[in-house]
Structures are given as structure tokens and as C-alpha cells.
Amino acid sequence: MRVLGMMSGTSLDGIDVVLADLDRDPSEPSTLRARLLHVGEEPWPEATRRALRAVLPPAPADVATWNRLHAQVGEAFGAAAARVLARHGGADLIAAHGQTLHHDVRADGTVAGTLQIGDASRIAAAAGVPVLSDLRAADVAAGGQGAPLVPILDQLLLGGDAGEVTAVLNIGGISNVTRVGAAPLLAGDLGPGNALLDAAVHAATGRSADHDAALARTGTVDAAALEALLAEPFYARPLPRSTGREHFDAEYVRRMLGERALAALALPDLLATLVELTAVTIAEGIASLGATRVVASGGGIRNPLLRERLAAHLAPLPLRDADELGIPADGKEALLMALLGHLGAHGLPGTLALADGTAHTGARRPVVLGALTPPHALRDLPRTAADGTPVTRLVLHPAS
């Protein structure tokens, strides 16, 4: 089954895409094989990216604006899918995450709802392929956090490594971790990844990010500001937990430090402090997991200063790139979408079961994820007896 996975994270860098041909290993039906036909990134239309940035919390937005964006994001995903499939061949299914606009976490840490936009009908119309979308809502309906979803991919790729306890780290707008291997599965969000850094740079310069940490490297960490930011109550919540830009928004640092303290910080010093905040909160979140290694992916790991500071705080625990292990670090979340698409198409849960029967997200049980557009689209999908077998391992094969 050929699945195009599509993902846009909170950083809005682009639309990540992975086209994968997935099938069962004939000699071991519980092993799923994925031949990676294409791994890449498609650009956002600049007007759509600006419009999305303009409605992210704490900015106010009305229903009409969100409605228009739902259509525009669907059109952007549809155009991106059509381009990829025209270049690399067709697909049986598109699994599209869409763009998160709101992830509603209550005061007690439970999730009231989650909203990802991107009209699936427009994607299907543009690409001529059925679309699985709304990939978080079923988990939230079952009492889960709806995030992170990547642990199922982490477990299938790295959970079988003998003797290892691996902390699988992703640093996007928000950072998250999965513990897999020779210890019970545990996962959740750790805190801000790139979100606060990008917001500070954009507010001061209009640029999307501090590329290569050029500004942050010239700054000095402000100890008092760092201490104030580390007082955030979210860091004391146990895993599983989730958060988003609704909490760590563009005004978050101002709320935590106060107007006068923030104004006293030069931009390079603010950025250096936020890099240190991200590194410290990630390292402290991982410290209690008993890991023997950390395997990292996501845009944040490309920030050289953040990587250096994170490695220093994790030491002597080794920090490795996912690419070193044959996992496409920049396309990992799009690969996850392709995996969830395959699992959903065959009626298999997209979350992992813990020993007590609950899901890794805190849901009452693992559930099948996603809604299909059009609803009858996969009725003719060829099926074998192996397709209903729970998947215990995923093996990646780069396209020849």
C-alpha cells in the first residue's frame, strides 16, 4: 500500500512529506516494511503561512477567519500532494495531519479538545486520492492527550534494540520524548522547543527564526530570567502530558518575566536564555527516564547552539541523530503520518497499549485514528489475512 504522509508542525517551516510503500514481511507478518520512495518538504504559500501565524495564540481570531484558513490549508496540502504524486507516482491513500490551530489543555492537565484544520475534501479533490485526516480527535474522545502520536513509530523502529533504553526526542515548536526499549513505555511533551525562540526572533526582526543561532551565540544567559522561566508549573506534571502554542505563545515570556525585565534584555541575551531554557527542560525531562541513549530529530536539533547545550546537559548520556540510525530526522513526523494512514486503513490502533490496557496518551484504550474522505474510498483496497495482525516492528528501506 502506497501512502503519502503529510505533516506541518507548530513552527510552520513547510509541509513535510513522505511517500512510502508499506507491506508485510511474508516470513514475519507482524513486521511491516516501508520503502521510502520520497522524503521532502513542500513550501507553504507565503500568504497562507502569514495568515496562520496571525491567528496563533494569543492573537484573537473569529470563526470566519478560521473557516477561510481551513479551506486555504486544504488547498495548500492538496497542491503539495499533487506535486509530489506527479513527480514520484501515485498513492492509495494520503494521511494528512493538517495544521494545529488549538490544543485545549484544562487546568488539571486533561485535554478538552484539539483542532487541526485543512479541508480533506479539497486535498482529495486536488490529488485524486482518498484522505485520512483528523488524526488526534479519536484519542482525545477516549480520554487521551491526543499527543504525542509519534511513540508508535518510535516503538516499532527502536523498541526492539536489545539492552537499550532509548529516549527518542523530537524538537519541533514543542519538544516531546518517548521512552522505548528495556523499560516501560512512557511518552509526553517536555515543553517549548523552537516555539519561544521563533516567536522572540519574529517579534524583534520579522524573521522566522535565528538561523544557525547566529544571534543567540553572541548573547549571554540571564540567570534571573532563566530561573523565572523554569518556575513554569507545566514542568512538574508527570508524563503523559501535552501542551502547545496555546500555552507557550508569543506573549508567554512577557507574562513570565514582566514588562520591565523583558525590556532590559537585549535580543541576543534573550535568545541565549531561551536556548538554555529549552536545553535544560529537555535534559531534566529525560534525566528521570533511565535512558542509555538519546536519539533526536526535528528542526531544533539543527540549531547548533541548542544541540551543544543539550549535549552538555545530557552528558555523559550520548546524543545521536535519528539519521545515524537510518531514520529520516527531517521527515520523521511525515513518516509517522504514513504509518498511521496504513494502520487506520487496516483498522489497527494508532496508539500503543500499556500493561494495564490504557493507551500511551493516557486514553482509556488504544483507538483507530482518523476520518476517511470520501468514506467509501478504501472499500476496494486489497486485503490479506496478515493485514489484521498487530504490528510489532517497522523496517525502513530507502528507495533504490
Rank of each mutant, 00 (worst) to 15 (best):
L158G: 01
D161Q: 15
G163D: 13
E164W: 09
E164Y: 11
V165K: 09
V165M: 09
T166L: 10
A167I: 03
L169R: 02
N170M: 10
N170W: 09
N170I: 08
I171C: 00
G172W: 04
I174D: 04
S175N: 04
S175I: 06
T178L: 08
V180E: 06
G181P: 00
A182Y: 13
A182V: 08
L186Q: 15
G188V: 04
G188L: 05
G188A: 00
L190S: 11
L190C: 06
L190I: 12
G191S: 05
P192Q: 11
P192S: 04
P192E: 06
P192N: 15
G193S: 08
A195L: 10
H202Y: 15
H202E: 15
T205S: 07
S208H: 14
S208C: 10
D210G: 05
H211T: 09
L215T: 03
T218A: 13
D222A: 12
A224K: 14
A224Q: 01
E227A: 15
A228T: 07
A228P: 04
L229R: 03
R237H: 12
S242V: 02
T243D: 01
T243F: 05
R245V: 01
R245F: 06
E246G: 15
E246A: 13
F248Q: 12
D249W: 10
A250E: 03
E251K: 05
Y252I: 06
V253D: 05
V253M: 07
R254K: 13
R254A: 14
R254N: 12
R255Y: 09
R255W: 05
L257G: 05
A261N: 03
A261R: 15
L262Q: 12
A263I: 13
A263N: 09
L265S: 02
L265C: 03
L267M: 07
D269S: 06
L270A: 08
T273G: 00
T273L: 01
L274T: 14
V275K: 14
V275P: 03
E276H: 13
